[in-house]
Design a protein around this nucleic acid. Structure first.
Lengths: 222, 222
DNA sequence: GCTTGCAAACCGACTGGTCAGTCGGTCGGA
DNA sequence: TCCGACCGACTGACCAGTCGGTTTGCAAGC
């Protein structure tokens, strides 16, 4: 797990046309935005980094804001796709909850720079960005809430304020990913090992029939 | 609890000289920064809002950044003071953990605008701010970690990765406060009721001898 | 195969607006 | 008369976005 952090070809993973000018721009933007933040990034930085020209950038993207939000959206989509794909393989109930959380963490750790853009750089920039971030946030919280509701319905966990809990979970996940992304510190493996059980326990899920390292079936990746 | 959100005299609560120019500037800065964010705030906005002049602002504060970071620091200090004061009244162990978390939430909900500055506006602005936010973050995570360690030592909860858990807790708290601060949505009371038990359960603390609404002693405020 | 035409893709010097910060100056109290 | 507090018009850097121009790919006509 998490052997490679895609540090070279991040955007390529979810955009087809590698090598094209458009792609080079996106890659450069991702790189610079994630390092410097939105405001500290000058379009000329992206020009230099991408090797394209100012004109090329404004030919492909209407403005700086759209370019940035595009990156955020793309990554959020990817994340959602991966979570849903992973879920589909499993039966309803707490197993799904566990898989959703794990997939989230795996994806963040694999796509480190996009994660930083989504979680760190998209905050505190302005109204439009704040809204976008909250929306994205809620989007995943809702996903978690859905699976939690399922688990409650199945009687696997006692009823709880699913709305609040799912927000809290996202917050917990985000906080650790942010910390890892910026300080490199709690290794992803350690995060998963400590966090996932804690989250499950927080809703009163006692690890029934979980023989420590049960090989849960896992099919097609991505 | 949380009857009044100090929406008028935020800074006054922790700065002595109310009415002075310096104080009026801080107040105005808090107001504008929390609404607009760091970059969208023009010094001229603060000028207008405070009734002071550009010269007065630059007489009291070296630059925009320092003014902003000053607000962040002041609020972080206040928060820490309040948590420590609340803790002092209680015996070591899980009770302290509960009180620490509750006090955090109470303080955030009471000082809504400073909270927004600390949690939302101080992110994604730039290196200096990012560091500051991480540092503040860690500062409180460490505090929680300390009390959790105590509880583990006392045998009230099983051992766990306290470092990761405390970060996760802060993240959960932050996420909900941010959501409340921006959307006004999960009422503070609901947050406390749902979140605190969940956090406690997440470290395997079974609510022993907690008769639902036990009147825990509470002395001097602030 | 070769010209011609045209548009999509790309180039980069330049502009126009925006602000953080400055600075010469005023005012009132000790 | 001196100094701390305050005033506000002004400046200079910075940078997103523009625009006239060039190159490239390619299809249609001959």
């Amino acid at each position: 797990m998490t052997k490679d952090t895609n540090d070279a070809v991040d955007v390529a993973a979810w955009e087809g046309d590698a090598g094209s000018t458009r792609h080079r721009i996106l890659d450069a933007a991702l790189d610079v935005f994630s390092r410097e933040g939105y405001h500290a990034t000058r379009m000329d930085d992206i020009v230099q980094r991408s090797g394209a020209s100012k004109g090329a950038i404004y030919f492909h993207f209407p403005n700086k804001e759209k370019l940035f939000l595009g990156l955020v959206d793309q990554f959020a989509d990817l994340l959602e796709r991966r979570v849903k794909a992973a879920i589909k393989q499993e039966d309803a109930g707490m197993v799904r909850v566990r898989i959703a959380v794990t997939t989230c963490l795996e994806t963040f750790s694999k796509y480190r720079r996009p994660a930083k853009i989504l979680l760190v750089q998209a905050a505190g920039i302005g109204k439009a960005f704040e809204d976008k971030r909250n929306a994205t946030n809620e989007r995943f919280a809702k996903l978690i809430a859905l699976y939690l509701d399922e688990a409650v319905a199945l009687g696997e966990i006692p009823p709880c304020d699913v709305d609040v809990i799912s927000s809290a979970w996202m917050g917990a996940i985000y906080a650790l990913v942010i910390r890892w992304v910026t300080t490199n510190e709690p290794a992803p493996e350690r995060i998963v090992n400590a966090l996932v059980p804690a989250l499950l326990m927080s809703v009163g899920y006692t690890a029934q029939g979980k023989p420590h390292d049960r090989p849960h079936r896992r099919a097609a990746r991505e």
